[in-house]
Design a protein around this nucleic acid. Structure first.
Lengths: 365, 365
DNA sequence: GTGAAAGCGCTAACAA
DNA sequence: TTGTTAGCGCTTTCAC
């Protein structure tokens, strides 16, 4: 099973001079050829490419960056790579970036300003040409460092008054209104909301959209039905626990993200409550897992690829045509409701535990 | 809510010369100070640091790399960042790397040799000092490129006969034997295995370990009870489906990874089969989610942080002390069984659907 | 079209 | 101890 590597010695990589010598041209011609300059004659170009192939040459990015000032590196900062929403986002962002000849530097801030400061510093040292700040509204003053150094940034749900900063607005309203409407149509009137951490702008936006949606359908919100969680599985468990202590309990819960909803699913299950029979549940994000929970989660989809595309476009514009007359500085990504199996009409006696009914469980998505 | 950035203009970053001038020393002294050379007097060192702070100076990594030949960059290639196992691994690897002054370049190969080739090329261009190949046994000849260019690599479960290549061996045996023993003690005799894709060495190793464990307890394996899946949620659903077509069905399933197990959980649920009452289920990895499935998943833990630590250590040694007399080239990471709620004694009539019994479901982890 | 030469910002000899 | 200087590998004027 072990495999021998094909070559013993590890010769130094050839440099542009080696190629130039092999092709009997100057290094300038090699450089021009590689960079697709139209000035090179086909005759020489052919010779150069042949030498490159033969020597298995590739340029040194650091030398290139040093002299040209362009690193072809974009940074992406996420809140927490462990939340499946983010890997899916990173995946898309990477694909697009690579397709356009960029490399990406990924870091998780873990909601820690100290960590974020270090990340920004490292990205500055690596001369990134732009940074996608996907921390969803936990923006910190340290980001000013970036724009002060002329590094374009794109933020989710946060505006920075700087020509180098773009914003991606998320239209939660559509999805959240649809979610509330959906519940109302099913007959729910007691609807709770498990919010995200209030230090996140996006969490507050989501909560506000929920309030607005409830008002729009003329439903009252009990203060205790809105509880602040932290967008984690454990947070969902805790949030559900808090709701269960109440005298009047909700028959449906909308969650600020899918992780919270999955936590609730687990907690409800442990208590013998059946979703959606005893409790309807709606998440937000539509992570890949959402389709595979028991029951499959009804959720508000926030497209990672749309988000990634918008972020990349914003950065690319700024990096490649910073002086274009009408740079688009605001992008919009929409949301939509995906109905699966975690929502149903409220039971007549939702408060009591009851024997399970297999029928209600085998909901097909 | 929009915030003004603190400075209007975007002045060019100061360079080492600026600092030298401000501190009234030579650029060599600035360089020495930054790099912690013991040769610098405290008097000058203090002046230099003061200038650095005042100018908000930081060195240009590319210039540094170019002249020193050290990029302080490690690459990490994972199979698929969308499988939660990998973000957890990346998270650990990043933490350790950053703590030691390294940066990481992350890429997903998505099991595509063409993509992998491009990744290797990009990492070579960026002059990474080492690459952790966490594709778990889907190693390709293209990796020889790395060692041929003198880039240290560390592989999971695959040996390359090169002084620059290290291996992390995974001791699946312990965990898988424990899993089978556990099932046997519960009274199971008909145990199936949902394998990973056979193109992955690790998948085959896991399967072989399962076979060995079965043999060790004197249990027969029906050929049809071992089915090749692909380590995804969907794959688990499909694998379960295949098992269900059999005349004699297993009462327990061991899965090659957690994603597969979660897929099975979902598929079984859809069919009205109750885990663990009608079917016992064991995963492998112990991803964070495993604790939050319904029921919580009994699984074989493979520590991401142990793996990340081993990978980093292997690379660091090679990068920093490549000529050390006794470089450790093999690392071992162990596995262990974590019993939660997805395993129980087999039902008397496991083949029939039966009304659920809440009791069996509310298993506490 | 092509080549010679001047650096990009830094580290590492080598001198002093 | 400190400073001077020669590049690292490349892109980009500027001549020809």
């Amino acid at each position: 099973m072990p495999r021998k590597t094909s070559s013993k010695s590890a010769p130094k990589s050839p440099d542009i001079r080696t190629v130039a010598a092999a092709a009997r041209v100057s290094i300038a011609t090699v450089s021009r050829t590689i960079n697709g300059s139209p000035l090179v004659s086909e005759r020489l170009s052919k010779r150069v490419w042949q030498a490159i192939k033969q020597l298995n040459y590739f340029p040194n990015t650091h030398a290139r960056t040093l002299v040209s000032g362009r690193s072809r590196l974009f940074g992406i900062i996420v809140e927490n790579i462990t939340n499946p929403f983010f890997p899916e986002l990173i995946q898309s962002f990477e694909e697009i970036a690579v397709a356009h000849g960029y490399e990406i530097l990924v870091s998780s801030s873990n909601s820690d300003p100290v960590v974020l400061t270090a990340i920004v510093r490292r990205m500055l040292e690596r001369k990134v040409e732009g940074v996608a700040v996907m921390t969803f509204g936990q923006e910190e003053p340290v980001l000013d460092q970036l724009v002060n150094h002329n590094v374009p940034i794109v933020l989710a749900e946060f505006k920075l008054e700087d020509p180098k900063a773009s914003t991606i607005l998320l239209d939660y309203s559509t999805g959240i209104h649809a979610a509330v409407d959906h519940l109302v149509k099913l007959g729910h009137t007691r609807i709770a909301f498990l919010a995200g951490p209030h230090k996140l702008h996006s969490a507050i936006t989501r909560e506000n959209n929920f309030r607005a949606a409830m008002q729009a359908v003329g439903l009252a919100i009990q203060k205790k039905w809105i509880v602040e969680c932290d967008h984690t599985l454990k947070g969902g468990v805790a949030g559900y626990g808090q709701l269960q202590t109440l005298a009047t309990r909700p028959t449906a819960i909308v969650c600020s993200n899918d992780m919270t909803a999955i936590g609730v699913l687990r907690a409800a299950y442990m208590e013998g409550l059946r979703v959606p029979h005893d409790l309807s549940l709606i998440g937000l994000d539509d992570i890949d897992f959402a389709e595979f929970t028991l029951p499959p989660l009804t959720t508000i989809r926030l497209s990672r690829s749309d988000l990634a595309r918008a972020a990349f476009e914003a950065l690319r514009q700024q990096a490649e045509t910073p002086n274009a007359p009408n740079l688009k500085r605001e992008f919009l990504v929409s949301t939509s409701l995906v109905v699966r199996g975690s929502t149903a009409a409220p039971a007549t006696t939702p408060q009591e535990k009851r024997p399970q009914q297999a029928v209600s469980l085998i909901t097909n998505p």
